[in-house]
């Protein structure tokens, strides 16, 4: 048997195992071993998912969450790379500023939410600020690290070519730090999704977080599970998309090594 066929066979077996878990879940729900208030059967959750998409409810919630996530994450990426580049490319900034940032890193970012609410109220702006603030750390610190770890000889070459500081950043440091930066951006994606959900729950902003909370309050467990499944799919799809983008963007590196 060739290798490709083996891989597919394993994958099929793995899907079969997952399907049997869902069947088990259906069985548990059908036998009413767990109250349907907490655990809807998978067919009910699926029906709720289909209904939500066909009447457009879930589309708008999904769009709301993706919008919060995307804006916050993009803002964090731009600001994180810019600030990280400024700090990382200067020795002075690295000695004076970077330690403060390292000190702030273990802070659970969600603790900034009350402060953001006090400043901005329960608004979209608050959500965007919180998401961007939370997502900026992995990107910024990865950028600083990437800039600091650039092969020193590349800097020497740049100096002997008399490149300007901007040129050094864009032509030498950024490409060389890009694996670190992209890894940071991937971490931030998860942070952005979690903070989007939290902000939607707290501020009642239109999105899946708000949807699952309302469903739970009304004990509509099928809708609740549909929302949670959709959030899982969102997490999965965004991370796969990020991996593919990473693969694409770093293809030049793989071919060099």
């Amino acid at each position: 048997m060739n290798r490709n066929a083996t891989v597919w066979l394993w994958r099929a077996a793995s899907f079969a195992v997952a399907a049997s878990f869902i069947a088990l879940w259906q069985l548990v729900a059908n036998l009413k071993l767990v109250s349907a208030v907490f655990l809807p059967s998978p067919d009910r959750a699926w029906a709720s998912l289909v209904r939500g998409f066909s009447n457009g409810d879930l589309w708008s919630k999904l769009a709301g969450t993706l919008e919060h996530m995307a804006y916050g994450w993009l803002a964090a990426s731009i600001a994180g790379i810019a600030i990280g580049a400024i700090i990382g490319s200067s020795r002075i900034m690295r000695t004076y500023v970077a330690p403060s940032l390292e000190f702030l890193r273990p802070l659970p970012v969600s603790a900034i939410i009350p402060v953001a609410i006090a400043m901005l109220g329960l608004t979209q702006a608050m959500a965007l600020f919180v998401i961007a603030f939370g997502a900026i750390w992995p990107i910024m610190l990865a950028t600083i690290h990437g800039f600091a770890a650039v092969e020193p000889r590349l800097y020497e070459v740049a100096r002997s070519l008399q490149m300007s500081r901007l040129a050094v950043i864009f032509k030498v440091a950024l490409p060389s730090a890009s694996p670190d930066i992209l890894a940071g951006m991937r971490l931030s994606l998860t942070v952005a999704l979690i903070l989007s959900v939290v902000c939607e729950i707290l501020a009642g902003l239109d999105g899946l977080g708000h949807w699952v909370l309302l469903s739970a309050r009304a004990f509509r467990s099928a809708d609740l599970f549909a929302g949670v499944i959709l959030l899982g799919v969102t997490g999965y799809v965004t991370s796969v998309a990020m991996s593919m983008a990473e693969h694409r963007l770093l293809a030049w590196q793989a071919s060099q090594r």
Partner: peptide, 14 residues
């Protein structure tokens, strides 16, 4: 990939 915080409403009613 399910964000942990998405389980919050389920844990809440259960």
């Amino acid at each position: 990939p399910i964000p942990s915080i998405a389980l919050l409403p389920i844990a809440l009613i259960a």
